[in-house]
Simulated assay, not measured.
Amino acid sequence: MISIRDLAPAIEKLQDAAMLGEGWADALESIARAGGARGVVLMHNRNRKLVAAVTNNEIKDAVGQYLSGGAPKNSRQLRVSHDVGSGFRIDQDDYSSEEIARDPYYQEFLRPIGFGWHANARISMENSDEIAIGFKRDLKLGPYEDADRQALNLLLPHIRFSARVAQYVFEAETRGLVRGLLGRGNPLLEFDGWGRVRREHGTFDMSGPLQIAAGRARTADPAEQRNFDELVLRAANARQLPGAILIHDRTGSRFVFQVLPVRGRARDVFHATTAVGLLISQPKRHAVNFNRDLAIELFSLSAREAEVVGLICQGRSLREISGTLGVVPDTVRYHLKSIFEKTGTHRQVDLVALFAGLASALTTLVR
């Protein structure tokens, strides 16, 4: 039986997570306990397919396995249909006992890991995008009953309110970051968790290094597309890794594209921007201010590699660098090869251009 007494502190934790943009796992843990469940999943479904989720820790691995394709298809996503105005649905609303006994999703995936029974509700629906919440109960506790449904329905308005707050907070934070970056006058893109363009600011025309078509950013040089996509996804998805890449327009002019994650584990579930990308035009070629820690963080450079980059940015030759570091020139060339691979550049001049653009963007961010 669900404890009504436990609902109030669980609701408070959920609303804190929504307003702060963090602490979702702990909040959902409290919601799970209050709702008589082992697992709770906030789901983003598109065209009735799960594309992103936030969970409590108990069910995190199972959801990850499902998202990666390591489980039978969830028949519930095709069978269960309800609107935003309705409340929770439980297994018995949509399945007979015989159907559950034959269903691979229940029998081959959920039951072997100890989960057995559902209570689901829709939080919001926009076109083909659905936000929903699912409670998964321990198999040994038996199915949810009508009394449980009534208790969970007391929770539902607060969950929906928290979802609206979360969307507002995430959008407000993104607008603030975007305004700060746009102060430089460079065009900027907002990405979702799949690397699709949510919004564009400034001009991305056919003569530039990037064009926007069908929600995707395309590089003018097709050979640069793969590295560009990987850069965006590293920042936009769960890894939240900042980075930058050197790209070119059709005339060969160089540009730096810097991507910054917009942090918050539940952003993608709530259709929010998860990364922003700034196009920095015509980076300068002369010596630049070099931020060693930023170079190591963005490109996973070793301390010695960062030292080499810093000296190159000062305009030093390979012979001068070898003398400064007390190594033979071939050792410097070995480090430089690794640096080129990690930064996606091919020449020293492009390396300097990359860090010139990063130094300029960093100055803008800290103003």
Rank of each mutant, 00 (worst) to 15 (best):
2 I>W: 03
3 S>D: 15
4 I>N: 12
7 L>N: 02
12 E>K: 12
13 K>P: 10
15 Q>L: 11
16 D>T: 15
18 A>Y: 01
22 E>G: 01
25 A>E: 13
25 A>C: 08
27 A>C: 06
27 A>K: 14
27 A>L: 06
28 L>H: 11
32 A>S: 10
41 V>A: 03
42 L>G: 03
45 N>D: 14
48 R>E: 01
50 L>V: 04
51 V>L: 06
51 V>C: 08
54 V>F: 05
54 V>K: 15
75 S>R: 11
79 R>C: 11
79 R>Q: 12
84 V>D: 05
88 F>G: 03
97 S>A: 14
98 E>S: 12
100 I>Q: 06
101 A>P: 14
102 R>T: 06
103 D>Q: 06
112 P>V: 10
113 I>S: 01
114 G>H: 00
120 N>V: 15
124 S>D: 15
132 A>D: 02
140 K>C: 03
145 E>V: 08
145 E>T: 11
145 E>D: 11
151 A>Q: 10
153 N>F: 04
153 N>S: 09
157 P>Q: 04
181 L>F: 06
181 L>H: 04
183 G>I: 10
184 R>K: 12
188 L>I: 08
194 W>I: 12
195 G>E: 04
201 H>Y: 15
205 D>F: 08
206 M>H: 02
211 Q>T: 14
212 I>G: 00
214 A>W: 09
217 A>S: 06
219 T>M: 08
220 A>C: 13
222 P>T: 04
230 E>A: 14
234 R>Y: 11
234 R>T: 08
235 A>E: 03
236 A>R: 01
240 Q>G: 06
243 G>Y: 02
244 A>L: 06
249 D>Q: 10
250 R>A: 12
251 T>V: 14
263 R>Y: 14
265 R>K: 11
270 F>R: 01
273 T>A: 10
277 G>R: 08
282 Q>C: 02
282 Q>G: 06
283 P>H: 04
285 R>Q: 07
288 V>I: 07
288 V>A: 09
295 A>V: 04
295 A>I: 04
297 E>L: 13
300 S>M: 07
303 A>P: 04
307 E>G: 13
312 I>H: 04
314 Q>Y: 01
315 G>E: 12
316 R>V: 15
331 T>Q: 10
334 Y>V: 06
335 H>G: 08
339 I>H: 01
343 T>H: 10
344 G>S: 09
356 A>L: 12
363 T>E: 15
365 L>Q: 12
